[in-house]
């Protein structure tokens, strides 16, 4: 399976409410004296409840697109509406609020805080969402149970396997009941079978929780499981279905 080859997988569109609306989106930045056009006119609509994949070779702009949708970065120009909010017009605090309530992130290298236990890692987004302490612990435990790690709730990340760490990260991403789950190579650091397990879990959870998922991946197996996908090259969509 070659990198960036997403295959032509056509699936029936079952959903109609748009979750992400992108019109002529550009993201340019300077690297020394060179202007890098990471995104160069993207048009894309992603619908509520979709399991959506973005693929492309490294440097194609797929991660840039993902983090723009998550309000972690700002577009140079163009329209970017996510969960009903125009992200191009929000200040830093509004974006933080947006990330807190609307977005869940899952990363390739998990990004768990090593000094905190599993449940404390899951707890963090709720702190920023102003939940009371008693509720936080209860919800964190519930989420860990959903990912099958309740008995590991008091272990630190270095006492957990890669698959378990990613499951903790999934619990953390879902804990504030986001509308959109953004996954950056979620299986990139996992072996094949673990990756499959994690994706199965993810699919199961998002269907239960009615969450839209956008993920960036090289992994053909993942792309095959997506409802739809786009392929990026040099900051443009070169393939979609």
């Amino acid at each position: 399976m070659s990198m960036g080859d997403c295959g032509a997988l056509v699936k029936e569109r079952k959903f109609s409410e748009p979750m992400v609306i992108i019109r002529d989106l550009h993201r340019h930045y300077r690297l020394g004296n060179v202007v890098v056009r990471a995104l160069n006119g993207i048009n894309l609509t992603i619908y509520t409840g979709e399991f959506f994949a973005i693929c492309g070779s490294s440097g194609s702009g797929k991660s840039t697109l993902l983090y723009l949708m998550g309000g972690m970065d700002r577009p140079t120009r163009g329209e970017l509406i996510v969960a009903g909010q125009n992200l191009a017009r929000q200040d830093e605090n509004q974006l933080a609020e947006f990330r807190c309530r609307r977005i869940g992130f899952i990363y390739q290298n998990f990004h768990l805080i090593p000094s905190l236990t599993a449940w404390q890692n899951v707890e963090i987004p709720m702190i920023f969402n102003h939940l009371p302490r008693s509720a936080r612990r209860q919800i964190a435990m519930q989420r860990l149970q959903e990912v099958g790690l309740l008995e590991r709730s008091h272990h630190r990340p270095n006492q957990l396997s890669g698959g378990q760490q990613q499951r903790v990260a999934i619990a953390r991403a879902l804990v504030n009941q986001p509308a959109l789950l953004l996954a950056d190579e979620p299986t990139g650091n996992l072996d094949n079978s673990t990756g499959k397990e994690v994706v199965a879990l993810l699919k199961n959870l998002v269907s239960i929780n009615q969450v839209t998922v956008v993920m960036v991946t090289h992994d053909m197996n993942l792309v095959e499981q997506a409802d739809r996908f786009v392929r990026l090259q040099d900051g443009r969509i070169v393939e979609s279905n």
């Binding site: 972690m72 933080a96 990330r99 807190c100 977005i103 992130f105 990004h111 987004p125 920023f128 953390r172």
Partner: peptide, 9 residues
């Protein structure tokens, strides 16, 4: 990470 999880400045 904390900012991605919703921490304000």
């Amino acid at each position: 990470l904390l900012k991605s999880l919703g921490a304000k400045n």
